[in-house]
Simulated scan of single mutants.
Amino acid sequence: MSWLSNVRNKIASITKRETPDNLWHKCKKCEAMVFLKEYEENMHICPKCEHHGRIGPMTRFAQIMDENSWKMIPWAAVQEDPLKFKDQKKYSDRLKDARNKTGEQDALINAQGTIENIPCVVGVQDFAFMGGSMGLAVGQAFVDGAKRALKDQCPYIIFTAAGGARMQEGILSLMQMPKTTVAISMLREAGIPFIVVLTDPTTGGVTASYAMLGDVHISEPGAMIGFAGQRVIENTIREKLPEGFQTAEYLLEHGMVDMVVHRKELRATLAQIMGYLMAWKTAA
């Protein structure tokens, strides 16, 4: 080994020791390396290309709700692993792994608090928890959030992020679609706003149920929204689909969502919408 190669190896070794993996974030869109602290301070948005990264419930609550105003809504117990499902791994073990990874009980978390002093209930799906998949626990959490909004006569806001229904629960996961639809009907009959914020990605049975039943549909920029994937649809209909046809911007152009809102403007936008939709209560 030459003297120059030896020096290069030593420098690389020192650099690797002094720059831990958690110091930088690589953007999934433009692949720019961004200082992690800068990325987090920018609300998990790439400063180079404005790509909106995926975030979990705790981060979302902190970003969107008034400081020290929110508290978690307790989980209602549901039957776990009702089918005793096992593929390459036991479903019960997958749940344990997801809970250890995220620190959450399941893929949908509700909190009660205020946004710019307006009371509301906010539900956030966590894609990091088994792809945000919808099962018994998610369905029950949604109903619990809707019931709390009904009780307190305040809007229910849901941030969706899901790969669809949870296959390990079979038909029981699909039954959550009508279950959540009934809860939305209860909100509508009571005149309580149900606001949906579509985040990346929102697909499958979630799109086919509560994600598309809101009074207002907002999306974050660049979010992928659809039922089945583009390749599956193309193979089924045997036609080439337009590029980016499942992006938030494409759906906005075709009337599927009401607005695409930058994450930094989302808090103010939600407060404004709630103010409009709850005007009847203020007047009363």
Rank of each mutant, 00 (worst) to 15 (best):
K71W: 04
K71F: 08
K71N: 11
K71H: 13
K71G: 12
M72L: 13
P74M: 04
P74R: 03
P74K: 00
P74G: 04
W75N: 08
W75I: 06
W75D: 11
A76L: 14
A76Q: 10
A77E: 09
A77H: 01
A77W: 08
V78Q: 01
V78S: 00
V78Y: 02
Q79R: 09
E80F: 00
E80S: 00
E80H: 04
D81R: 07
D81Y: 01
D81F: 00
D81A: 06
D81H: 02
P82F: 04
L83Q: 08
L83W: 08
K84P: 15
F85V: 12
F85D: 13
F85H: 15
F85Q: 12
F85S: 14
K86P: 13
D87T: 13
D87H: 07
D87V: 11
D87Q: 12
D87M: 13
Q88Y: 14
K89N: 13
K89W: 12
K89L: 14
K90S: 15
K90G: 11
Y91P: 03
Y91Q: 09
D93L: 12
D93W: 08
D93Y: 08
D93V: 12
R94F: 09
R94E: 07
R94W: 01
R94M: 10
R94G: 03
R94A: 11
L95A: 05
L95I: 05
L95Q: 02
K96E: 15
K96D: 13
D97K: 15
D97E: 14
D97S: 09
A98V: 04
A98P: 06
A98F: 05
A98G: 05
R99V: 08
N100P: 13
K101W: 07
K101C: 03
K101M: 09
K101F: 11
T102R: 02
T102E: 02
G103S: 03
G103C: 02
G103E: 00
Q105G: 07
Q105E: 13
A107G: 06
A107E: 00
A107V: 00
A107Y: 03
L108E: 06
L108I: 00
L108G: 03
